[in-house]
Design a protein around this nucleic acid. Sequence first.
RNA 1: GGAGGGGUUCCUGAGUGGCCAAAAGGAUCAGACUGUAAAUCUGACGCGCAAGCUUCGGUGGUUCGAAUCCACCCCCCUCCA
Length: 432
Amino acid sequence: MGMQQGLLARMRSLGLIAQVSNEAELVAHLDGGSRTVYCGFDPTADSLHIGNLVPLLALRRFQLAGHKPILLVGGATGMIGDPGGRTSERELKSAAVVQDFVSKIREQASAFLDFDCGETSAVVVDNAEWTEKLSAIDFLRDIGKHFSVNAMIQKETVKRRLEDDSQGISYTEFSYMILQSYDFVVLNKRYDCTIQMGGSDQWGNITSGMDLIRRMNSRQAYAITYPLITNSDGTKFGKSMGNAVWLDQHKTSPYSFYQFWRNCADADVIHYLKIFTFLDNAELARLAAAHAQDPGQQLAHKALAAAVTQLVHGEDGLAAALRISAALFSNTLASLAEVDLEQLAQDGLPVTEVDAESMGLLDALLASGLAMTPRGEVTLGQARKLVQSNAVVVNGEKTTDLEMMLSRKTALYGKYQLLQKGKKTHHMIVMR
RNA sequence: GGAGGGGUUCCUGAGUGGCCAAAAGGAUCAGACUGUAAAUCUGACGCGCAAGCUUCGGUGGUUCGAAUCCACCCCCCUCCA
C-alpha cells in the first residue's frame, strides 16, 4: 500500500473529516496521483491561533502523503469578512493592517510545510493578487453571472443571517462566497488545484467554488471539510483566561501554550491528540489506554502538551515550558537557585520589574495585572477580594494579609517575588 | 422616501416614574473537593474600605425623583416605494 493510499480513511479515523464531496471519486482521485490541495486563512489578526492549527496540520498530512499544499492568505477576502460562523457584521480593517497581517501569517504558516521538496513543495499565495485587479464590470459579467442569488440565499451561513431578526447581512459580506469561489477557480487554472479544504462552516463556500470551476474551467473539483473543534463542556475552544491561544511566542509564551494543552478536559484529550499531533496509531492507543486506566496521572495530557508545544515552538520552547511548569507546580520554589529564577523570566514566565525597595502586596497585584476582574479591568477592589478569598500565594506561602509588604527582605535572593493567583496563574516581580 | 419594530450592565434577556447598580440564565474570576481534570457546592461579578460616585444609544427637557415620560438626533432590523 502506497503512502498516499488511504489518506482520507486515515484522516476520517482521526476525526479530521466532517464532509467530503463525492467520496468514491475523491478517493480514486487522491490515489491516482499527486494532487494539489488548498486551504484559505483570513488575516484577522497578526498571528495565527491554535484553531488554525487544524487546517495547517491537515495540509501537512496531505503533503506527507505526496500531495502539494497551497496555503492561501486572504489579503482580499480578509478585507471583506466571511459571514460564516458569525452572527454579526465584521468590522472592516484597513488595507495597511491587512497587509501587515498577511505577511506575518505567511511567515508563520510556512513553518509547518515543506517548501523544498520538488513537485510537492508547498506554495503560499495571496488572493489580493488576482482579486484586486478585478474590475467591477469583469466581476459582475464573468463571475457574478454564474451565481444564482436564489441558490446563494439557501446557503446555511447566509440563511441564518437572513432569518435573524436583529441582524442583517450586507451586500459586501454576501459577496464573500463569490470571491472565495473565484479563488478556487484561479488556483485550479494555475496549479491544477482540485481540492479545497476548510472548516465545516465553509462547506457552502467550497461547493460554490466547485460549481464555478465546472462552469468556468469545465473541470471537476472536490471539497473536504473538517469539523470545527469544540470543547466537550461546550465552552469555546482555544481560549485561555479569556484570551486566544496564539502561535506567536510573543503573544502566547511557550509556557502558556504548553499549559493550555496540559489543562484540556479529560474528555477531549484523546481527540486532540489525534488532531493536533502526528502520533501513530500504536502510540495513540497506548495513551488512550493509559488515560482510561488512570486519568489522574494525566499521561495523555502531558504527551499532548509536549507534542504540540514541540511542533509549534520547537525543542527549546518545549524545554523552557517544562522548566517553568516543573518549578511552579511542584512547589519547590525554595530549592530554586538564583539562576533558575533568572531562567524562569527568560523562559516566558510573566515578569514585572519595579524600582521600589518595597511595595504593598495589593500594589504588586495591580502592577502584575493579576488583580484583573472578570470583565478585564485591573482594580484595587479585585486585589483585595483575591487576598481576602484566600487566592494569593507569595513565594510559596498563602497570605490573607491585606497590609503585607513585599521588600527585599521577603524576596527570594533579595529581588524576586513570585506571586500566584488561584491555582495556576503565576507572575514574577523583580526588584531592580 | 413611507410604515412598523428595536438599541439595558461581557452575552442572552427582564424591567414602562421612586422598592433599580438594575430580575434571571450563561460566560468569567476565586474558594472547597480533586488530578494543574470534570461534575458539584460556596462566594464574587460597574468603581470605591466606606460614605458615596458613575451607568441603561446620544443630547436636551418635564419631575422632588427617569432605564422608564417628552423633543430632537444617531444606529440596527422588517416591510412598502
